[in-house]
Every structure is written in structure tokens, then in C-alpha cells.
Amino acid sequence: MQGDQHSQYRQHISGQFNAELDAMKNHLLEMGGLVEQQLSRAITSILQRDSGEAEAVIAADREINTMELQIDEECLRILARRQPAASDLRLVLAVAKSTTDLERIGDEASKVARQAIHLSELPPSASGVNEIRQLGSHVGAMLRDTLDSFARLDVGRAIDVVLDDNRVDEEYDAAMASLETYMRQDPAHIRSVLFEMWALRGLERIGDHATNIAEHVVYLVEGVDVRHMRMDELRALKASVSVRPGL
């Protein structure tokens, strides 16, 4: 039902306005796809200590920055020329805020890739590989879910992403603790472990930005600002939206 249309509501009288809103949202999802790809390539580069792949990730970040500027300009133009209201206004705000978070995710992916370049110059060690793989796949799934929830205006799924962020934080703390143990046990590889810690930190931040986007989705669909909401409140909100027909 929603498909390319940004909401469950009818088309605008102005077909041009419709087209502008759809284009803006599609560009955001396109940017999201690119950022997703960057993240997955950055994780591969660090797991394989592949400096070539890492360089490619860093180079591609420029494209993401350009997209951020373009989409923000689209939002500004729609605000100035169309004076959107209600769900249209919330869509423009959600898109404008989400571009910032996507761009930051891109930055963090580059940061992870930079650690891969450092690691590629060090002797092999298997210290943090499992931790990075686990946290990387977790935040990768979060990013995918958050973008899907945006595309489908799926509030339940967006709230799940927000709730999931706590688990990412726990995993990050556990990973840091085990890397600290590696450092104690094998001081020869302290440099490697430090770079891996930076990568883990980057991944954890990506989880935070994916959560922010999920919060923008809840605002877009429900008009409720869930930032700084407690876990039990979020669960209650999810329960109340899942019983409502049409969502």
C-alpha cells in the first residue's frame, strides 16, 4: 500500500509536490543503502586486515557527504516552497535529521576502515576478530532494520531497533573487557588490540546513530518524540501501536 508513496494517505492535489516528497525520501533510502554497503565493506576490511578495501571505503565517504548536502537542500527547498504540514512536515524533518545520522555512520565506517589500514601493517593476531564480527553484524542488522522501518513506516520495527541498542551497549562493554584481557595476556599485541578497540568504539557509535534514525521514524509515523524515553515506556508504546488497525 505504501510502496513509493511516503505515507498511507492519499496523493496530493499537486502531483509535483508528491513527486518532490517521494524523490526526497527515495534519495534518503539510496543514501542509506550506500552507507549500509560502506559499513559492511569496512567490517570486511578490518576482519581481513585488507588495506585496499579499507582505502576504497574511505574514498567512497565523499559520495555520502555529497548526498547529505543534496538531500538537506531538497528538504530546505520543500520547506521554503511548499510549507508542508502534518505528516508531510514530519517527513521532511525526519529526513533532514536522518541524513545527519547516516553521514555520521559513514564517518564511523571510515574510522573502522582506517583501523584496518593500521592493522594491515602489524603482525597477524586473532585477538578481537570475534568481537568485531559479532558487534559488526549486530549493528549492521540494526541499520538494515532501521532503514526498512523508514521505507515501510513500520513503527513496531523502529521501536525494536531502539530497544535493541541496549544490547549493543552490553556487547560493546563485554568486548572491551575481553580485549583488555588479551592485552594483559599478550602484551606483544597491544597495538593491534588498541586499533581493534577503536574499531569497536566506531561500531558502537553506529548503533547509536541507527537508533536515532529509528526514533525519527517513530516521530514521523506517530508524531511522538521518543528520544530519552524509558524502556518500559517504549514497550508500552509498541504494544499500543501494534493493536491499532492499519499499522
Binding site: 494517505y9 492519499r10 496523493q11 496530493h12 492535489i13 499537486s14 509536490f17 508542508p84 504540514a85 502534518a86 505528516s87 508531510d88 512536515l89 514530519r90 508524531g223
Partner: peptide, 17 residues
């Protein structure tokens, strides 16, 4: 104007009427 509760209001103020 930011979050109307009736779909009819939403349609009207967003120009979908």
C-alpha cells in the same frame, strides 16, 4: 498542524483534499 488525529484533517491541511 503537526499531528492531526483525523485523516480528513490530515488530507485537508496537507493538500490531499
Amino acid at each position: 498542524f503537526t499531528n492531526p488525529r483525523e485523516p480528513q484533517t490530515e488530507d485537508y491541511i496537507t493538500g490531499r483534499y
